[in-house]
Measured scan of single mutants.
Amino acid sequence: KRPMNAFMVWSKIERRKIMEQSPDMHNAEISKRLGKRWKMLKDSEKIPFIREAERLRLKHMADYPDYK
Rank of each mutant, 00 (worst) to 15 (best):
K1F: 14
K1W: 12
R2W: 00
R2E: 10
R2P: 12
P3A: 04
P3G: 12
P3R: 06
P3W: 05
M4N: 07
M4S: 07
M4L: 09
N5F: 02
N5S: 14
A6N: 00
A6D: 02
A6K: 02
F7Y: 09
F7H: 01
F7T: 01
F7Q: 05
F7A: 02
F7K: 01
F7L: 00
F7G: 02
M8V: 10
M8F: 10
M8Y: 11
M8G: 11
V9A: 03
V9M: 04
V9Y: 04
V9H: 06
W10S: 00
W10Y: 06
W10A: 04
W10M: 07
S11I: 00
S11L: 01
S11Y: 08
S11V: 04
K12R: 11
K12N: 13
K12P: 02
K12I: 11
K12G: 09
K12S: 13
K12L: 12
I13L: 08
I13F: 08
I13Q: 11
I13V: 10
E14Q: 08
E14I: 02
E14A: 03
E14W: 02
E14Y: 03
E14T: 00
E14M: 07
E14K: 00
E14L: 00
R15S: 10
R15V: 06
R16N: 11
R16I: 12
R16S: 10
R16E: 13
R16V: 12
K17P: 04
K17F: 05
K17C: 05
I18R: 00
M19H: 09
M19A: 08
E20P: 01
E20K: 04
E20H: 07
E20M: 02
E20W: 04
E20Y: 01
E20N: 08
E20R: 03
Q21K: 07
Q21M: 07
Q21G: 08
Q21S: 09
Q21T: 10
S22M: 07
S22T: 11
S22K: 07
S22F: 14
S22R: 05
P23G: 06
P23N: 01
P23E: 05
P23A: 06
P23C: 02
P23V: 04
D24C: 06
D24Q: 10
D24A: 11
D24R: 05
D24N: 10
D24K: 04
M25C: 07
M25R: 04
M25V: 08
M25I: 08
M25E: 02
H26K: 15
H26G: 15
H26N: 15
H26S: 15
H26L: 10
H26I: 08
N27Y: 09
A28E: 11
A28C: 08
A28P: 04
E29F: 00
E29W: 01
I30V: 13
I30P: 02
I30T: 02
I30W: 03
S31F: 08
S31A: 14
K32A: 12
K32P: 03
K32G: 08
K32L: 09
K32M: 09
R33H: 12
R33E: 15
R33P: 02
R33N: 12
R33M: 14
R33T: 15
R33F: 12
R33C: 14
L34S: 02
G35M: 14
G35E: 15
K36A: 13
K36S: 13
K36P: 01
K36W: 04
K36C: 10
R37Q: 13
R37E: 15
R37N: 12
R37H: 10
R37P: 00
R37L: 11
R37I: 10
W38T: 00
W38G: 01
W38Q: 11
W38V: 02
W38I: 02
W38A: 04
K39P: 01
K39V: 06
M40V: 03
M40P: 02
M40H: 10
M40E: 15
L41S: 04
L41F: 01
L41K: 03
K42S: 13
K42Q: 06
D43A: 08
D43Y: 09
D43G: 06
D43R: 05
S44V: 10
S44N: 07
S44K: 05
S44C: 11
S44Q: 15
S44Y: 12
E45Q: 08
E45D: 12
E45M: 07
E45N: 05
E45W: 05
E45G: 00
K46L: 00
K46E: 02
K46D: 02
K46G: 03
K46P: 01
I47P: 00
I47K: 09
I47H: 05
I47C: 04
P48G: 06
P48V: 08
F49T: 04
F49I: 03
I50T: 06
R51H: 07
R51K: 12
R51T: 07
R51Q: 15
R51G: 04
E52C: 05
E52H: 04
E52W: 04
E52P: 00
A53Y: 01
A53W: 00
A53F: 03
A53H: 02
E54K: 01
E54V: 03
E54F: 02
E54I: 02
R55D: 10
R55T: 13
R55W: 08
L56D: 08
L56F: 06
L56S: 09
L56R: 04
R57K: 14
R57M: 11
L58A: 14
L58I: 11
K59E: 13
K59N: 13
K59T: 13
K59L: 14
H60I: 09
M61E: 13
M61W: 09
A62I: 09
A62F: 09
Y64H: 15
P65S: 15
P65G: 01
P65T: 05
D66M: 00
D66F: 08
Y67D: 15
Y67K: 12
K68H: 13
